[in-house]
Amino acid sequence: MKKIVVAIVLLTQFVLQAQEKTGAQQFWENLQKQCGKSFEGEIKEGASNDTFRDKKLVMHIRSCDKNTIKIPFFVGEDKSRTWVLTFENDRIKLKHDHRHEDGTEDKVTQYGGTSPNSGSAGIQFFPADQETLNLIPNAATNVWWITIDETSFTYNLRRIGSDRLFTVKFDLTKTVATPAAPWGWKD
């Protein structure tokens, strides 16, 4: 009987600890479960003439530290893009790191935003920050969001007040071969 009581107490403590995690913490843990894996995606929303159409789209959750996750996003042979997520003070920040083939930074890089609240386990929103406004004035009304669940990851962009909408969805049930290092990285 004593073992059953101890087991119930331990289980209750575990459940309470799990419930105490914020949306941002749960989202972070859900994303970290995919570390090291690569997935193919497809455009779900976007301009019919965008440069991503008819190209192989692959994301590689390449680097996961306690507070930083880096996800290179490959568009065909273009290895210039990396989504950089940072977890700090129960908020998640999204930045876009753009590089040239030689590894140098593009002139348009490090734009993004920070979640205004802890969000939820399955979705985080990132309204454009001041750095984005200073770098790309037209992007002042950008809102990015990322969703994750057991089967999919989506990266989304909406420019409020315009028709601009972009969504790429990755199938988390099927890994693909890991691509070579993105521009500016070493294997």
Rank of each mutant, 00 (worst) to 15 (best):
S120H: 11
E88H: 06
V58G: 06
T104C: 07
C35V: 12
T82M: 02
G112V: 11
G119W: 05
K79N: 10
S115M: 12
L94F: 05
S48A: 13
A121Q: 08
F126M: 01
T51L: 09
L133W: 03
D129W: 00
G36N: 09
D90M: 08
W83E: 10
F126T: 02
L135H: 04
C35T: 13
R91V: 03
E29P: 07
N30G: 04
W83Y: 09
P127F: 00
V108E: 08
V58D: 03
C35G: 15
N117I: 01
E42P: 04
A128P: 01
K70W: 00
V75W: 02
G41A: 15
P116C: 07
Q130C: 01
K37R: 14
A47W: 07
G46V: 06
D97P: 00
T132E: 13
F126V: 01
G76L: 14
R81M: 12
P72S: 01
V58A: 03
N134P: 00
K66A: 12
G76N: 12
E77Q: 15
V108S: 04
N134D: 09
P116L: 14
K95E: 05
K33I: 04
D129F: 02
F74S: 02
P116Y: 03
V75K: 10
I61H: 06
F125K: 04
H96A: 05
F125V: 02
G41K: 14
G103Y: 00
H96P: 00
F74D: 02
I71D: 02
L85M: 03
